[in-house]
Structure formats: C-alpha cells, structure tokens
Amino acid sequence: MIHTRSLTKRYGPVLAVDSVDLDVRKGDIYGFLGANGSGKTTTVRMLLGLVLATSGGIELLGRPIPGAAREVLPQVGSLVEGPAAYGHLSGRANLSLFDAMGVGGRRRTRQQRIDEVLEQVGLTEVGRRPVKAYSLGMRQRLGLAAALLRSPRLLVLDEPTNGLDPQGIREIRELLLQLHATGTTVFLSSHLLAEVEQLCTRVGVLDRGRLVLQEELAVLQAPTGRTFVRTPDPDRAQALLDGRVESRDGRQLLVRGTDAAQINAQLVAAGVRVDELGPERRTLEQVVLEATEQAPVGSSRP
C-alpha cells in the first residue's frame, strides 16, 4: 500500500529524512515510531504530496506520488499534524466543504456519509455547533471524521489520539480496529509506544531521519529463548539452576531455555517457591531503545 525507495528530504544542510525504504502491506496496522523531530511528519507529508522529496520514490496504492496524487489521494484518508477546520462554521458544514473540494466526493451521498462519519467518531450531537466551540478532543474527532468521509482504503494518521482522554483513546482504538477488520490498511505515526504496542501489527522505527527497524510486531516480541523466574528464594534457585542463569535482578532470574514447565518442575521438586515464571518477551520499548541506542525515545504513558 505504501512503498518508498531511498526516500530522502534535505532542508538546506539538514538531512530530515535519509534513504527511507518503507514497506506497508495491505491489511497492516503499521506503527511508525520515532522521537519528536526524527522526521516522521516530514515523511508523512511526502507520502501525501505536501512536501516534495529531494530524491527517492514513493508509491501509494501502487501509483507514484506526487505524479498520480489526483487518482490516489481520494482513496486515502489522512490526519496530518493535528486537525484543522474553519472555526466559524459548524462541524457538519466543515465536512461538507471539505468533501466538496477536489475530486471524489459525490454530492448525492454527501449528507448520508457525513451522518455516518459523525456517528463513527461520536460527534453526532455537536455536529451543528461551530467548531470554535469544540474542545481539542472534539476537533481531533472531527479531523478523523474528515479522513473517513470517503471510506478510504488507506488511512494515514499522524498522532490521531493527541488531546484525547483515556476513554476517547479507547474509542478511537476500537474504531481503528473495526475499520481494519473491514479491510482498511492503517498507517499510524506516533511517539506513544503503548498505543502502537496495543494496536499495530507491524512497526517501523525512525531515528534521526533513518529507518532503523521495520518488522512484524509479533516477530519483535517473539520469545527470546530465555525464561524469567520470580521467586522469594533467588539464592537457592540460582544454585539449583547453576550455569543456566544468565542474569539476576533482585528476585528475578533470567534462565536460558524455553521450557518453562521443566524449569518449574525442577524448582518445585527442590522445594524452591515460585511466584511467577514464563518465557521472556521483550517489550516494544526495549526493542525501540536497542534500535535507536539512545536515551528514552518517547513516553510510554497509556
């Protein structure tokens, strides 16, 4: 759905995006991670033809951008760096205006589609109020509604849950999962690791303009071949599993081997108490930190 070849953007001496090869496949929920200033938004803008690449190529839905933007973009819904609307007009009037712009918005179905998307994002009741009276969260929902107006095949969303409360974030997450279930591919740019971890099937990590990682989330979080054991008797456990313990952190041990049941049996047989035990999986945060090799990339608040 999205394919870039050595995509590069240079602003004067600054290399904002450096040879990025994105590969977003049909049916993905692709999490595009990176710190603030890592080049995420510039990449998203290039994908949508807002910013012209210095070099490299972009294909969206199999067609070149910006060359075929006119044919491709009507099938793409996007939210770029926060929503925007005309404050003196109502939410409905804004959607109606945006739909009437450019190609692809059929007038006959317009009101019906507006009703549908307002319902989807939960704005039905305030659709007639002027946007300047909206809260940040409501504006964000209106932006999403505008992105969904033409039932896009691909959604490109930049920080879609910005400004939403936890309840709102969950509603948007459910909406995205529901859209994904009906065949929409989602490209989600975010610095919230927890959000990506809960939602995405594939992950790309951008660090200072370079794509340092692109992989299925399931692969990244696959068992590491070690088992973690939490026990109130760490000394005895370490003695018992001698040689297989790779590291110890207080009451937690990391043991080589994936057979948790066998380790458990061995410990219990020797009378060692076990609080918790299971195959070790890396968190997305660990994966991202390893890939970027620097201080915390972003907060992981829920």
């Binding site: 807002l50 006119r70 973009l73 793409v76 996007s78 005309y86 945006f98």
Partner: peptide
C-alpha cells in the same frame, strides 16, 4: 495558518486549481 491548506491539498485539490 489555520492548517486547512494541507487538508485541501491532500483532499486532493490540485495546487493550480
């Protein structure tokens, strides 16, 4: 300044139009 320009261009509305 209102941020609506980017949404017009990605609608898409051709820049000449």
């Amino acid at each position: 300044a209102a941020g609506t320009l980017r949404y017009m261009v990605i609608r898409p509305v051709g820049r000449t139009t």
